Amino acid sequence: MELQENLSVVLHAAGDLRLEQRPVAAPRSHEVLLKINSVGICGTDIHFWKDGGGVRFVIDKPWTLGHEFSGTVVKVGSGVQHLKEGDRVAIEPGVPRENDEFVRTGRYNLSPTSFASGIPPNNGGMCQYYVHDASYCYKIPDLVSFEEGALVEPLSVAIHACRRAEVKMGCRIFICGAGTIGLMNLLVAKAMGAAQVVICDLLSDRLKMAKEMGADYTLKVEKETAEEMAQKVKASLGFMPDITIECTGAEICMQAGIYATRSGGVLALVGLGHEFANFPILHAIIREVDIRGVFKYCNTWPTAIDMLASKRIDVKPLVTHRFALKEALKAFETSKKGVGIKVMLKCDPNHLGQ
């Protein structure tokens, strides 16, 4: 099978996003060639496009964006046994290159050798055809759509966050941010047995969706101090939450998380903000509030797919906009404006539905 075209969304420098044809790679023995169907545009993609990099990542050559994606296997490497041509898969973008101590202990997301699709310098899945390690491609059943398959990535962030925070039956939770990751955490926390969840955001539309998706209380952030925000959380729940899951990366929300969380509780930091932040650390120390970092995910794809297949959670309402791959620039502009929740790129011109 000779594949000639591979339209791709390529970032050359800050603000310089282009649609161009790139070569179709041949899979090695442990890899599969995928025909990409759906790719979600993430806040990280917007950040790279606008700023051209970040604290940890620098763009020094053109590369293809995209790390939330799903597709169909079209060619299988000689050593691959568990996948075949025609299988529909959700792709885990983070692949460790070495069997180091983090891989051996099951925390491969922390491996310094980890390869991450769509994160510089590694090409991602905003294209028509993409090669990936077969061990990190997971079959999705017919009950799970391609779009849901693409959303397994942000869903996995939430599963990992809720595990790190030790969400359990009957707990009370405060979530900062009602974007994709905040809403995913809401869904997962409820599925894991959280009794009450209060969520805050700057935008009323997002809070409306949060309420529709199961939030018990919503708080619109105005011009409060971190301590005032914490008092609003306590007033909503009637007591301080056991767990705060911070999904914005904003310094004031991190601060509010410490003030709001009950003594002996957990503050899970999911959102990526600046390299340094001011913390009311004494409040965390004397009240023994555990501060836990959350980086990507590990061992989550099977759980996420099972959650979707069993209909325990419904992520479909999160997709508010769809664009064909050739409309990628328009899709990025839409996402940049903060309109809706998840903007989805449809990479297969013959399959533009869900």
Rank of each mutant, 00 (worst) to 15 (best):
K234G: 08
G273C: 09
G124E: 09
S8G: 12
I159W: 05
R287G: 11
S70W: 07
G249Q: 13
H283N: 15
C171K: 12
K190W: 12
F174V: 12
N299I: 04
A195S: 02
A256G: 11
K316P: 07
N37A: 12
E251F: 08
L237Q: 10
G265K: 00
M307Y: 15
G170V: 03
F48M: 15
S145M: 05
K296F: 13
L183P: 05
H132I: 05
L151V: 02
M1V: 04
V197P: 03
S263N: 01
T113S: 15
E275H: 12
V10F: 10
C200Q: 14
A268T: 01
F279G: 05
K316I: 11
I313L: 04
G71I: 04
I243P: 09
N350Q: 08
F276W: 03
D45V: 10
M307L: 09
Q128V: 02
M184Q: 12
C137Y: 13
N109A: 03
D87V: 04
V76Y: 06
C253A: 13
A304F: 04
L33G: 04
T218M: 13
A195H: 02
D100T: 14
P27R: 09
M229V: 07
A309L: 08
L17R: 00
V95M: 00
A256F: 10
R104G: 07
